[in-house]
């Protein structure tokens, strides 16, 4: 695990600050992500997790600070720039469009084209074929590539989104609370997908506020609280209880946890 830190990080976020009017959402956050690691970003609601990953994926521009991608400073004007650089985001609820077919969703924003004379058309045959292939690899049986995403379960939708990102050559995959709305078995599927993706040397940034999900797949853990990092820990250097305490940012939870029998 530690050998990974000898590589160059694929993405370095240095002292990122983001202000929304008078609200300081991020007050100098630094995180490095290495290829092939699953970097968990933990924090309670309002800690700045979403703002941080939106900065990483080009949705927000940082007020101050620097983003180094593959060692070079990057300035993303919009998410398309970040996507073409190889940073893909799978959002909590906003990953897929339920009314559209799986294959249209899979290629949304990256439609394969075929030329007929001077005109370019959406290559549906190729899109359908690739979609079926990729879905089978991830263990999802589709009725057909024209099946609407709305008929898939939450876990399957996340898996489609992850498969899509990896297919399009993501070097950094940002997962924004992919497991928060899922059942136990679906969560296990998504975590297994993360593991598969990591083995392909993709850097995974896994945002969650569930410590158990984080510990199940994470290599390193960074805790955000009120717009600042509380430090990064290696796997094995930190206990679930310590992580939980850091996220909650205080000791109140300890008393509560005792009365609940340690189930949080």
């Amino acid at each position: 695990m530690n050998t990974r830190t000898t590589h160059e990080p694929i993405i370095r976020m240095v002292n990122i600050e983001k202000h929304f009017g008078s609200v300081i959402a991020l007050a100098g956050v630094s995180v490095d992500v290495y290829p092939g690691e699953c970097h968990c970003l933990l924090g309670d609601n309002g800690a700045g997790k979403s703002t941080f990953i939106k900065t990483m994926s080009g949705v927000h521009k940082p007020t101050a600070g620097e983003i180094l991608f593959d060692g070079k400073p990057m300035h993303f004007d919009d998410p398309r720039d970040a996507i073409s650089a190889g940073i893909a985001t799978v959002h909590q609820h906003l990953a897929m469009i339920p009314l559209m077919s799986v294959s249209r969703n899979f290629f949304m924003g990256n439609e394969p084209l075929k030329k007929i004379g001077p005109l370019k058309f959406f290559d549906h045959d190729l899109a359908n074929q690739v979609t079926m292939e990729e879905m089978r690899k991830m263990g999802i049986n589709l009725r057909g590539p024209d099946q609407a995403v709305g008929t898939l379960s939450g876990g399957e939708r996340q898996t489609v989104a992850i498969a899509r990102a990896v297919h399009f050559g993501a070097k950094v995959l940002i997962l924004d609370e992919p497991t928060s709305a899922l059942g136990v078995r679906q969560t296990a599927n998504v975590l297994a997908t993360i593991d598969k993706v990591r083995k392909q040397d993709v850097a995974v940034v896994f945002i969650t506020h569930n410590v158990r999900h984080a510990l199940a797949v994470g290599d390193r853990f960074t805790v955000l609280n009120r717009g600042q990092t509380l430090g990064t820990a290696q796997r094995g250097q930190i206990t679930p209880e310590e992580l939980q305490d850091m996220m909650a940012g205080g000791q109140e939870l300890v008393a509560l946890e005792e009365s609940l029998g340690g189930t949080i």
Partner: peptide, 22 residues
């Protein structure tokens, strides 16, 4: 039959998701 057509569906289906996908 075109890429733009897929964008039309996507924009109306869920503008935020479409934007996130580029």
């Amino acid at each position: 039959r075109t890429r733009f057509g897929n964008w039309i569906f996507a924009s109306g289906g869920d503008a935020e998701a479409a934007r996130n996908s580029g």
